[in-house]
Design a protein around this nucleic acid. Structure first.
Lengths: 348, 348
DNA sequence: CGCTGTAGTGCAATCGATTACACACAATTG
DNA sequence: CAATTGTGTGTAATCGATTGCACTACAGCG
């Protein structure tokens, strides 16, 4: 057989098919420009030589890596890993690779992203973290760098970046109203991380729902949280120390809701007997928690897919002058067993 | 300022520093080979021009992508996303990018990996999935392809591949013994997916522990499972249909354990009052489940880190003739509240 | 002084694909 | 029939960095 000690190149294919390298290249990337018979010869030669494209060479010439960079605050977070999953699917379908950058505890996140993008390793950036410095992102996005960027899940205010997210404010309002509709009047909110835009919107939704029911926002019923179980767990201790305790809590996300319930359990309280709890996200575990968690389901798969679609559309359409795009997806109330009518409560 | 309409290249830097491109390149990759003063001039020129390396060009020349490919069965699975997290950390520290390939439901997984690897997009493959076809992997690993490969978490029997995993068999044995030590004599096992090596080892550990306590393996106490919550949930229904019910279950992983408990709850049974349950993995949610889950903790972060280390070590040491490496990490029993002494049970 | 060794640098080839341009030939048109 | 258009292919430049080889200058040595 062929005595190819090295990876076969397009040259080898050309030789084997008795055509020029230009023809081989064209047969690969624009088959319609090559005659039927030549195409067949090239295909056969590729088979015989076992040729595979050298992506580095193509990238160098075309200034395109066929790769997107997904930057996320924390891969371990089940919410983000679902998104990543959807993004990877869509990207793969469209022939793109997915490079991941975990920003959690990273030293200079913006710098890292910049290095990645400017070194031609990725063609576009999908940012799932709203906490980055606006000005360094703008440096990236504006000429001469002109990095294609889509922000998903989170949002960067006043940035004009393309964005895909869910209706956090209105969903939070609906979540809160769900509790109110069940008769609860003392409704607390377990906050997301300070400074986080999503957390801010969910708080805003909560804040908006209360007065509509004639209720007031009470500062001591805004529990500090951080989107993770530990912070929810800690908030439960705070809850216990309150003289006048809420009968329902709207948690900024499922993880913190679960942490909170876990903390409550330590103190002998049970959900929904002693307290109603609604979360946000509908993580996989929400349906199987004890009790199954009422929550606002975010369409994670859709969100990830649309974000990837948007970014790749931008990449493949060099003339994207259609202005900033913004897609808002709707969340859905999933009622399970962690919320109950107030009158149904046995006294604690 | 500089009227650079295009990304500055090493040529621009060379011109600005008044040296040759060769010198600039050396200043970047082997600074000790360049004089102090030149080095300073180059640094300054890089600053002035805003130069960033074109990774594609370097890859082409050096036949190195500075990237590893991580292939996993399902990113959404919290276990794998933790591993991915650790891998990403380690890779980043060592200057490598991480490309992810989600194999879940993928059409031709082996083919996809091969395409990735042979197209010079990644230098090495970190495989977190043991279900791939051995022969296609061997094609990849053996000359002339010679793709550096490390298998982690799972294992591919008789493959001779480098492997990092945990002591599944002995850990499963300890888990089972924990239940036995608590006085349980009717101990069931919620299986992992059929054909999965890890699941097989955990079953083997379970099978080994029983006779040591004078117990027999009962076929009807081996519940079908699939490492996910849904399968655990379904297994609970099967459990309920049993005439003689076990008093304790060792689940092949936490997810299925949670699904099982969730199913049990639907039937009015409570853990640990009616049944003791031990899981495997110690997912984040295990500590905050109701009840907090007793489980075998796998050192996920360590495992991910070591796997990445091993792979990158191999990549950077071309002469790795030291034979197949195999690292086995120990799992740790974490006792929480889902397991209880048999005598302490109130009758169901 | 002449010889050798070494540090520092430059020249130019190279990695493997893409693509602008040129060209040959066939088909179509006025 | 000449001119024009179109189709299919080849030649060679190009992308941007790395690196083998050659060279200079100077230090150390006998």
């Amino acid at each position: 057989m062929m005595e190819t000690r090295k990876t076969p190149t397009i040259q080898d294919v050309a030789r084997s098919a008795n055509v020029s390298t230009a023809t081989v290249s064209r047969a690969l990337s624009s088959p319609e420009r090559v005659s039927e018979s030549t195409r067949a010869r090239v295909s056969e030669a590729i088979r015989v030589t076992g040729y595979t494209l050298n992506q580095a060479a193509r990238s160098l010439r075309q200034r395109t890596a066929k790769t997107i960079l997904v930057a996320l605050p924390d891969i371990r977070n089940s919410f983000f890993s679902s998104i990543l999953d959807a993004v990877e699917r869509e990207a793969t379908n469209r022939g793109y690779g997915v490079l991941v950058a975990n920003l959690f505890n990273a030293r200079a996140p913006a710098q890292r992203l910049q290095d990645y993008m400017l070194s031609n390793r990725a063609d576009g950036l999908l940012l799932l973290d709203g906490s980055l410095d606006l000005s360094s992102l703008q440096t990236l996005v504006r000429p001469p760098n002109s990095v294609p960027l889509v922000v998903a899940c989170e949002e960067i205010p006043n940035s004009g970046f393309h964005t895909v997210l869910t209706d956090n404010l209105s969903a939070a309002e609906r979540a809160t109203r769900h509790l109110i509709d069940l008769g609860h009047r003392r409704v607390a909110h377990l906050l997301g991380p300070e400074g986080n835009v999503v957390a801010r919107d969910r708080l805003a939704g909560y804040t908006k729902a209360l007065p509509r029911a004639g209720l007031e926002v009470q500062q001591q019923w805004l529990f500090r949280g951080n989107f993770d179980m530990e912070s929810g767990f800690a908030a439960a201790a705070h809850f216990m120390s309150l003289s006048e305790r809420p009968t329902a809590v709207f948690a900024a996300n499922d993880e913190s809701a679960i942490g909170f319930l876990s903390g409550l359990r330590q103190h002998g309280l049970t959900c929904p007997r002693d307290i109603s709890m609604i979360g946000f996200d509908d993580l996989g575990v929400a349906a199987h928690y004890t009790p199954p968690l009422t929550t606002m389901r975010q369409p994670r798969e859709l969100l990830g897919r649309m974000a990837a679609e948007m970014l790749i559309d931008i990449l493949e359409d060099a003339e994207h002058r259609r202005g900033p795009m913004r897609i808002v997806l709707n969340s859905e109330l999933i009622v399970r067993e962690s919320t109950a009518h107030l009158p149904l409560r046995a006294s604690g």
